[in-house]
Amino acid sequence: MWKAISQVLADQFGAYYNIKQKTPVLSGETHEAWIIDDGIQPVFVKVNEKSYRSMFRAEADQLDLLAKSHTIHVPRVYGIGCSTTHAFLLLEAFTFQTSPLSSDMTEFGEKIAQLHQWKQQDKYGLDFDTWLGKVHQPNEWKTNWATFFSEQRIGWQLQLCKEKNIEFGDVTHITQAIAAQLAKHNPSPALLHGDLWAKNYGATNQGIIVYDPACYWGDRECDIAFSELFSPFSPHFYEAYHRVYPLDEGYAQRKPIYQLYYLLNFSHRYQGEYIEKAQQIIDLFL
Rank of each mutant, 00 (worst) to 15 (best):
Q41F: 04
V135A: 06
T84S: 12
I72L: 12
G133M: 05
G109E: 02
F149K: 03
K50R: 14
P75F: 00
Y52P: 02
F149D: 00
P75Y: 03
F44Q: 04
P138N: 14
V47G: 08
V135E: 12
A87Q: 10
Q157P: 13
A60E: 01
L158I: 08
Q62R: 02
S69K: 04
K123P: 03
R153L: 05
F56D: 00
D61V: 08
G133I: 04
W156R: 12
V47E: 08
V77E: 06
F148K: 03
F96V: 05
S103D: 12
V45H: 06
K134M: 10
Q117A: 11
I80W: 07
G79M: 10
Q120C: 15
H116W: 07
D61C: 07
L132H: 11
D64I: 00
P138E: 09
L66R: 02
K123D: 07
P100T: 04
Q121L: 13
L65G: 02
F128K: 04
P42A: 07
S103Q: 12
L115A: 07
A146F: 02
L115K: 02
E151D: 14
S102W: 11
N48S: 15
E92S: 13
K50P: 06
K68Q: 11
W141V: 00
T143H: 11
T147Q: 12
V47I: 14
I154C: 14
F44N: 03
F44G: 03
P100M: 06
S83L: 08
L63R: 00
H73F: 11
G81I: 10
A87M: 09
W156S: 13
G109D: 04
H86E: 15
R76W: 14
T85M: 12
L63K: 01
A146N: 04
D122S: 13
R76L: 14
Y78I: 02
E92I: 12
T98V: 12
S103R: 11
K111W: 03
S150Y: 09
V135W: 05
G81Q: 07
M105P: 07
V43P: 01
